[in-house]
Structure formats: C-alpha cells, structure tokens
Write a protein that binds this DNA or RNA. Structure first.
Length: 493
RNA sequence: GGUCCCAUCGUCUAGAGGCCUAGGACACCACCCUCUCAAGGUGGAGACACGGGUUCGAACCCCGUUGGGACUGCCA
C-alpha cells in the first residue's frame, strides 16, 4: 500500500450481464481512482473456463462505458495469464506451501459425516500423504493456529482464527489456478493499492492474505506487467468490503429473481447520470446530506471511510423518481434528443413514416414533466402517430361504455368541434368542451374523460386540448365518430 | 454445524455522549392547484430490535440476547 496515486481494480467475473451490485462496486473503485489521480484497472476474472464468453466481456465494457466509467487499464483477462500463475504455483510448491490432494468431494463429505455431525470443509486428509502433483488438486497449507487479520477501511480490523480456515484448493487438478490465488498474483503484479469489492468476499480475504504473505516470504517479485521492471512485491493493499445490495427479502440480489441487469435499466430509458447518482446513495451519502449530485461532486466528496456497514435494498421506485427529476431538469433540446431512440426505429410503436418531429416537439414540454423514464414516452404520444389509437379496454369500459352520458357527450363534442369557426386550437377546444360539459351538467374534468378515451385511447396522458390541437380536426372528429359508433354497436342501442 | 459481517421510519439514510421532542429523501395518506395524469405546494402517519452495564447524561461506548445476512465449491 504505497504512495499517493491509488491503483484500484474492478474485477468482475463475466457471467452474463452487468449486475447492479457490480456497477456500484465499479463506481466506488472509480471514485477512489478519480479523486486522487489514480488508475482504474479492469480485470476479467475468468479462470473458470465454464464462465466467460467474449460477448459477456463486451457487455461489461459497454455497460461501463454507458456509465462513463471506462477503465484506464485493461481489460486484463486472467485466462491469458495462466503461465504467470504457474510460476507462482511452482514457487509455492517448492516452498512447501502447497500439497497435492486426491480426495473427491464425496470422500471428504463421507469422512466429515463420520466424524463431526455436519461440518463442511476439508479435513486435511492429504496433508501428510504423498500424492503426485500431476493431475491432482493443490491445496494451500493454512496455519493451524494463530489469527489472520484483515485490515478493512470500512470495518476496521477483522480477525479470522486460522483454526477455522481449511486448506483451500489453490489449483485445480487440471492445473488451472483458482480465484484466490490468481487474484493475489494479479493484485501483486498490477500493484493494486486498494481492493474494493463486495462484502461477500470478506470471508475469503484471509486466505488471500495468507497466500500473499507466503509469496512474500518466498521472495516473490512482481512481473512488471503494468509497465515497470520487475521489482519487490508491494505490501498488502488496503481492503474495503462494501455492504451487499439486497432484495426486499434482505437477501443478496439474485440473478434469477431480481431485476439486476444494468442493461435492462439502460434499455428502459434510465439516464446514466441518474443511475450513478442513485448507486452512490447505496451505502454512502455525502457529508452535506445532498441527494442529487453528479459524478464530479461524488469524486470530490467520496470517502471510503464513510461507507456504511449495513446492506442496502436496491429500490427501483426511488431510482425511478430520481430519474424523473433528472429528466425534468434536462434542457428542452437535450430531452428531445434523448427521446430520439424511442421515437423512430424499432422501438417506436408506430409506422416510421407517420412520425412528425414538429408535432412531437410541440407536445414535448408536456411529456417531459410527465415521464420518469424514457420508455414512458411512446405511450404518451402514440395516438398522434398511429392511424388508430390503441384503445385500452379498461379505459373504454370505465370512461365510455360505463358512462351513461358518454354518448351524449361524444355527440355534443362532434357537433361543437365541427362548428368551430376560428382556428383549431387549444383555447377554442377548451371553451367548446367546457360548453359541452355544461350542457350535460358536468364539470370539465368529468366531461373530458370520454373524449380523451375516444381520441387517445387512454384515460391518462398529456393535456387534452393541446393534444387535440396537434392531432387536427379530421382525425379528432373521425375518432369521435367511430367511438360513437362502437358505443352504439356495443350497447345494442 | 463453523467462521465472519450487520442492526435508526416500509425503503435509502443523517446522527461520530448533551444541539434529538431523532432530521431529510422515496413510498404511503389527506388537502390545495388542476381538463385527465403528472409536476408543484401544504400537512400527516411512520424508526433508535431487546436486556444489562459505563456516564451527571447514550441512538451514539462496552457486554450479552435476539434477529438478519454472507461465506463454508477442483465458482467468483
């Protein structure tokens, strides 16, 4: 742990998509690097061949890019560094820190069952047996007594009794090194100063510390893989184990049941700025108590020492609210631009040719203050660009079919709208509709409901008269008439 | 079973012994505004897990209990 400029690493294993917990870990690492002129390294932990497909790695990189957290170095892939790990394994083997083991899991379990009642873990059966190194797993000989201390900036010193630590497998029988060892060798070679990761890794940290110390005792040197020459290995890094992100059941976020893919938030129209802001509030909060802040402020305020100890629930509702605040704060032009992907191309629910940017721009200010995520934009304006509106059946049932005055109102609206003498614009429509309502003894709020559903297909949406103005008299009257027809047909009248 | 971590409103958190009658935000409820829905405004309900210490004084320090979680794999 030296020096001024920290070198941190974000080391995900590529397992499909970018997990929100990983994003939070990446963010906190990134903050530490940025605030002190440090280096943010990306390392892909893919020692397990079962994992890791190139597309997953691409996914991680692009998600990180979306969040403006491009790595300064990497991606390094552990799968490409096996030769280096073998050197460490040789050193450890020759130093007597490793021994070969030919026990199968079943044998270990059977022995454990025989002895203790149910005590998982390895019993050290092969410690003093002679097993050939080739073709067998290599276990790390952990001390029988004493304690291993992990100095964690967030939690303080955490002590692990060595007696409770079993001889873990460091190298598979295939010769492939496992995570604990590869991790340590990499952190040494990459001169990592701060290991910032999830709390779930805390229990394995003492094993890494032991491996680190074993290597140090054996005179291991770094390989200069980060550019410099070979040099003495650095001391232990600073550890920081971040509190878990949990679901409503207070359990570690699960891939299967919880919405954890960062990509899915991107695809639903969350803003990266809002996403980062929210992530920053999980396990940490700025000294001034601010809730809304950008990454520059986070870089300025963030302190690893200030990170919480307890798990945090990933609350999509709060994220969504925050995203709405960001959307409303956007300059109008930016909002229009950000809506782009939702208005044309495959995401747009209407025929491309029907889309009219001018019409959208006219409605946009009303849309901007009504959506919390961009995926809500199309349904808010689809009636303008669809030949026929999507009629929500529930809305129709309630506001039209279920309203005994609906037919009267619709008919009166057709009459009033078609006899408008001035321009077809919001104020005239407003006044006309007000009159229609008075005709049936209803206030505007109640009177506009059937009209809204007839024309837009929905009970909620942007203000009606602005909408009608943009839609134009032909389509408006058309839709009013067909709604009236449908109503007549449906009710048998 | 073992090891470790954690414990303030439903949720995210502020709180680093007296400033706490515990603050803010999301969610929730009511009202106002209002052409629907939002946004906005006002108000409301809502927490220091429990028990012992230490102290003149504890949400804050210590111990225990309880509860939750993680790990315990030839995954990471």
């Amino acid at each position: 742990m030296a020096g001024d400029a920290p070198r941190v690493r974000f080391a995900p294993s590529p397992t499909g998509y970018f997990h929100v917990g990983s994003a939070r870990t990446a963010l906190f690492n990134w903050l530490v690097a940025r605030q002190a002129g440090g280096t943010f390294v990306l390392r892909i932990e893919d020692t397990d061949a079962e994992r890791g497909r190139e597309e997953w790695v691409d996914g991680i990189i692009s998600a990180m890019h979306w969040l403006s957290m491009d790595p300064d170095e990497g991606p390094f892939r552990q799968s490409e560094r096996t030769a280096r790990y073998h050197q460490a394994v040789d050193a450890l083997w020759e130093g007597g820190r490793l021994y070969a083991c030919d026990c199968t899991r079943d044998q270990i379990d059977a022995r454990n069952k025989e002895h203790g009642i149910q005590t998982p873990g390895y019993d050290g059966f092969c410690r003093d047996r002679v097993v050939t190194r080739e073709g067998h797993a290599l276990r790390f000989r952990t001390p029988d007594e004493g304690i291993t201390v992990v100095h964690d900036v967030i939690r303080g010193p955490v002590e692990f009794p060595c007696s409770a630590m079993d001889d873990f497998v460091a190298v598979k029988s295939t010769g492939v090194p496992l995570f604990v060892l590869a991790n340590v060798v990499d952190d040494i070679d990459m001169t990592i100063t701060h290991v910032i990761r999830g709390e779930d890794l805390l229990p394995t940290t003492p094993k890494g510390v032991l491996a680190w110390e074993a290597l140090a005792t054996l005179g291991w040197v770094t390989d200069g893989s980060t550019g410099g020459p070979s040099r003495p290995m650095p001391g232990l890094p600073v550890f920081a184990h971040l509190p878990m992100l949990v679901n409503e059941q207070r359990k570690k976020l699960s891939k299967r049941r919880d919405p954890v893919a960062v990509e899915s938030y991107r695809d639903r129209g969350y803003l990266p700025e809002a996403f980062l802001n929210y992530l920053g509030l999980l396990g940490w909060s700025p000294p001034g108590g601010e809730e809304l802040f950008d990454t520059a402020q986070m870089v300025e305020w963030f302190r690893l020492e200030d990170v919480n100890h307890s798990p945090a629930f990933f609350d999509v509702a709060k994220l969504t609210h925050m995203n709405g605040e960001y959307i409303r704060a956007m300059p109008f032009e930016s909002f229009i631009e950000a809506c782009g992907p939702w208005l044309t191309g495959p995401l747009a629910p209407w025929p491309e040719a029907n889309f009219d940017p001018a019409v959208f721009a006219a409605m946009a200010p009303l849309v901007q203050e009504r959506v919390a995520v961009f995926s809500e934009v199309p349904p808010m304006v689809d009636f303008l660009f669809l030949d026929q509106p999507v009629v929500e059946e529930e809305a129709w049932a309630k506001a039209v079919a279920g309203d005994e005055l609906a037919g009267t109102i619709l008919a009166a609206a057709i009459e009033a709208y078609s006899s408008l003498t001035g321009a077809w614009e919001r104020d005239a429509l407003h006044a006309a509709t007000l009159a229609v309502g008075e005709g049936v003894g209803r206030k505007l709020g109640k009177a506009q409901a059937p009209i809204r559903v007839a024309v837009t297909g929905r009970r909620v949406g942007p203000p009606l008269f602005e909408a009608l103005e943009e839609l134009g008299p032909d389509k408006t009257l058309d839709r009013l008439r067909s709604a009236l027809e449908r109503l007549a047909a449906g009710s048998g009248r």
